[in-house]
Design a protein around this nucleic acid. Structure first.
Length: 659
DNA sequence: CCCCGTTAACTTTTT
DNA sequence: GTTAACGGGG
């Protein structure tokens, strides 16, 4: 029996969407092609569960990949249910993990002997690993820190979560890992992987805890299932239990995070993993014109490992894909800017337009072209907003205040503004803190402000001052705006910004204030610090401003724009040279291209340059194979031809031959 | 011990 | 063009 409310919920859906929403009899896999209404299905499912199945909203766990997706889902669910629901558990895997660890912190201490006060991000991990490598005398040229970090992460993620030991590692990663882990535990910090692995560890070792968590969630909804990695999968499996009230939504063709450990097999094997499961395939695309869809299908068709799926649309053909083969990257960028102006005249506001590229290093080129044409833009870096120096500094002040054992924070801002604490003194201070018998931050800072941490002279004075400041921050811990004021004014960090960056300090100070708008200040300093690490640039982008968006293809996942420029379509850039040797990686690149193309609703431009100056070198790499994979019927190619050789003198790094 | 200049190296994608 | 590491002067 379906209620009126239920009928209303379903009325706006097509047949397969409705099937996905109303079928609650067992595990459900929704294969949702690009633009087929996947978020719609998720939100309606949520509402259906509440209004038709009588499930309490708080016992539905909904996980997404970005905070932005979570927020959007939350908003749409609220609207559908037309209530002011509290306790909606919609968030990212990582924020779920974090909240899990917070609410089970006693068990975390008991079972794993760990306490989480800080989440460390990529750059923290980087400096930590580099420091360790230095200590262990490991050549950073032979073993790139980036590679080491990746190996550590892989080791952790693919390890034995019950025993909490990594996969077998080789020298030198094994010894670095050990030290790394030791430091994390001592500092009371967790990396991103810990947020997934530690909850698993707890549930695998404590039956009662597992049951408690299982009972919490009657239903589980998962977005972007094609991008889950092993611990995420295990988490879901464990929480779902035998009766498996779970619906996952995803598209294998949009799996683009394999390099980060995402495993497409999870979605390909769903039916085997979850017995008695059903599959619903959404193939009608509501987003793009049929030319765009045809072109995208033409590209993705070249992948061998996929579930065949034929997306279709009832929309008109629309314009053909405009392929531009430019002479050089400057011409390409100028074309993009010019075309944007033209589009605007034909009725596309700037906010409907996006430029996508494979590597962030390319953003500057298009940025400059837009600047020259007075086109407003914003760059969306997928990376953490708080990786901006000023934001990071301010957070480091707070982190250190709350957690004196956070040596990364100490090193970062112990001497900011300068107070006579050099590298050596900071090191000594760190050691002194580690030896401190107290575990309470207040007492540690108080003690140091009197003792001077065993230092002498100027350094002693400096460390006392630092400790006093830290104490003051703690006193304000429930009032975050006042903490920020204290740091900016009393600790004269604002002056410091002015010294460091005389032109941009105003904007930087503004960024710090922006921090306040991102965070929920209830819950005080500690909660905020934990959550802030999970907030990215993407999450604070304001959609309504009249600006063109610039972002990497990865950052564009889940977004859509009426007009899209896909730039830099040249071999070794896209596909990227580090992905070209291995067929699996190449297929991921192709999926990335597919993702990019299907972001477009009406207009799609794909541009390439015969020669490109990148990283200070002129390269001629040939046009991307993806361009040739687009069937001719869907594209119109504009070839600007060869560069005139008489201008060859203008190329400083031009190779002598090779083309 | 700190600061500032220089040089050198290096550039995928990110929760 | 950019940031990180290094070395010499204060």
């Amino acid at each position: 029996m379906i209620t009126t409310a239920g009928r209303k919920l379903i009325a706006s859906l097509n047949e397969t969407q409705a099937e996905a929403v109303s079928n609650c009899s067992g595990p459900l896999l929704v294969l949702a092609g690009a633009g087929s209404g996947k978020t719609r299905v998720l939100t309606h499912k949520f509402a259906w569960l509440v209004s038709e199945m009588g499930v309490a909203p708080s016992s539905i766990l909904a996980v997404t990949f970005t905070n932005k997706a979570a927020r959007e889902m939350q908003g749409r669910v609220r609207k559908l249910l037309d209530t002011d629901l509290k306790g909606l558990d919609i968030g990212t895997f990582h924020s779920f993990g974090l909240r899990f660890l917070i609410r089970n912190s006693k068990d975390l201490q008991r079972i794993a002997g760990r306490k989480i006060s800080t989440i460390i991000d990529r750059s923290d991990v980087r400096s930590l690993v580099k420091g360790i490598m230095k200590d262990l005398d490991i050549d950073q040229k032979r073993f790139e820190p980036g590679w080491v970090i990746e190996s550590i992460s892989r080791g952790k993620v693919e390890g034995d979560q019950k025993l909490l030991i990594p996969r077998v590692l080789e020298y030198p990663v094994d010894s670095i890992f050990q030290k790394y882990q030791q430091i994390l535990i001592r500092q009371g910090s967790a990396d991103f992987d810990d947020l997934l692995v530690l909850p698993l560890h707890l549930m695998l070792n404590d039956r009662e805890l597992l049951n408690r968590e299982r009972e919490r969630f009657e239903w589980i909804l998962v977005d972007e299932y094609q991008d889950v990695n092993r611990p995420q999968y295990m988490l879901l499996k464990l929480l779902a239990g035998d009766d498996a009230h779970i619906m996952v939504v995803g598209d294998p063709d949009q799996s683009i995070y394999g390099w980060r450990g995402a495993d497409m097999n999870m979605i390909l094997n769903f039916e085997k993993d979850f017995p008695r499961s059903r599959v619903v395939i959404l193939e009608q695309n509501y987003r793009s014109t049929s030319n765009i869809l045809g072109a995208a299908n033409g590209v993705i068709r070249n992948n061998s490992r996929r579930k065949p799926k034929k997306l279709w649309t009832s929309r008109a053909n629309g314009e053909k894909i405009h392929v531009l083969l430019a002479r050089n990257e400057r011409e390409e960028a100028a074309f993009v800017a010019g075309e944007i102006m033209r589009l605007r005249e034909t009725g596309y506001p700037f906010k409907d337009i996006a430029i996508l590229y494979r590597i962030n290093a390319m953003s500057r080129l298009y940025e400059e072209a837009l600047l020259r044409n007075d086109i407003p833009y914003r760059i969306v870096r997928g990376t953490a907003f708080y990786e901006r120096r000023e934001v990071k500094d301010v957070i480091a002040f707070m982190r250190l205040a709350v957690n004196p054992f956070d040596s990364a924070a100490l090193e970062r801002i112990g001497n900011v503004p300068t107070r006579g604490l050099g590298k050596k003194s900071l090191e000594k201070t760190g050691e002194y803190i580690d030896r401190n018998p107290s575990i309470f931050a207040e007492m540690i800072w108080k003690e140091i402000s009197q003792s001077g941490a065993g230092l002498a002279g100027k350094a002693k004075q400096g460390v006392c001052e630092l400790a006093v400041h830290m104490g003051r921050i703690l006193e304000r811990r429930t009032d975050i705006p006042s903490v920020i004021d204290y740091i900016m004014l009393e600790m004269s960090y604002e002056d410091e910004l002015g010294k460091f960056d005389p032109e941009g300090w105003r904007e930087r100070a503004e960024n710090v204030r922006e921090l306040l708008s991102v965070i929920t200040s209830e819950g005080g300093l500690e909660t905020m610090l934990a959550e802030i690490a999970l907030v990215t640039d993407l999450d604070i982008m304001d959609e309504d401003t009249e600006r063109v968006s610039l972002m990497s293809l990865h950052a564009a996942k889940g977004l859509e724009f009426p007009a899209i420029f896909l730039a830099g379509l040249e071999e070794t850039i896209f596909p990227h040279y580090r992905c070209m040797d291995d067929p699996d990686n190449l297929e991921e690149e192709r999926r990335l291209c597919y993702v990019g193309m299907t972001r477009a609703e009406e207009r799609l431009y794909m541009t390439a340059a015969r020669s490109r100056v990148l990283f200070g070198m002129t390269q001629r790499n040939g046009f991307s194979r993806f361009l040739w994979e687009i069937p001719d019927e869907f594209k119109s190619t504009e070839d600007r031809g060869e560069e005139e050789s008489s201008f060859a003198g203008g190329w400083p790094n031009r190779r002598r031959w090779g083309w």
